[in-house]
């Protein structure tokens, strides 16, 4: 089957099976590997991307749901790590193993796009679905709060 959608602001067309899914299409068919596989059942958030600006778990998103829509991945957030959250993530030296961080940043970016000045409680509520095993949560919080103040 043919699937067409807008990926990081460019139109793409993918040939894939009927049961193709967004995560594996991004990673394996389109070779955009910044989006990670973590649990496969929407429990960890490592695979978070934006679908028409809203954060979705790509691991449970059938590719058919992306048709005609805008998909944004970590690779499309900025061209040069210049998104305010990426800048803050580097300033605060947030990542450790780094595996969850694309998902963390994409989830946070969706929050700030909707609510530029969230309080701590709102941030925690919004970010709670994205797991980190290395224990970077407090720096994630700090990086988001810092960015929110600047935006």
């Amino acid at each position: 089957m043919q699937y067409s959608f807008i990926l990081n602001e460019k139109p793409v067309q993918v040939t894939a099976e009927e049961d193709a899914n967004l995560l594996w299409t991004l990673r394996e068919r389109l070779k955009l590997t910044g989006t990670k596989f973590g649990c496969g059942v929407s429990l960890c958030g490592a695979c978070t991307v934006h679908l028409d600006g809203k954060p979705v778990k790509s691991c449970i998103t059938p590719l058919s749901q992306a048709v005609g829509k805008k998909v944004t991945t970590i690779e499309g957030l900025s061209e040069d790590r210049s998104h305010p959250l990426q800048v803050a993530w580097i300033e605060e030296q947030v990542p450790q193993c780094g595996y969850c961080q694309s998902g963390q940043i994409m989830q946070a970016a969706a929050l700030l796009a909707e609510n530029p000045n969230p309080n701590r409680e709102e941030i925690i509520k919004h970010m709670n679905g994205v797991l980190c095993r290395c224990g970077t949560y407090l720096r994630i919080l700090k990086a988001i709060e810092k960015t929110a103040q600047k935006v």
């Binding site: 590997t33 910044g34 990670k36 991945t73 690779e75 993530w89 030296q93 990542p95 780094g98 961080q101």
Partner: peptide, 13 residues
């Protein structure tokens, strides 16, 4: 760190 904020760090998968 920079490679881990833009998805360019390469893991085996």
């Amino acid at each position: 760190v920079p490679f881990k904020v833009d998805g360019s760090a390469i893991y085996s998968g």
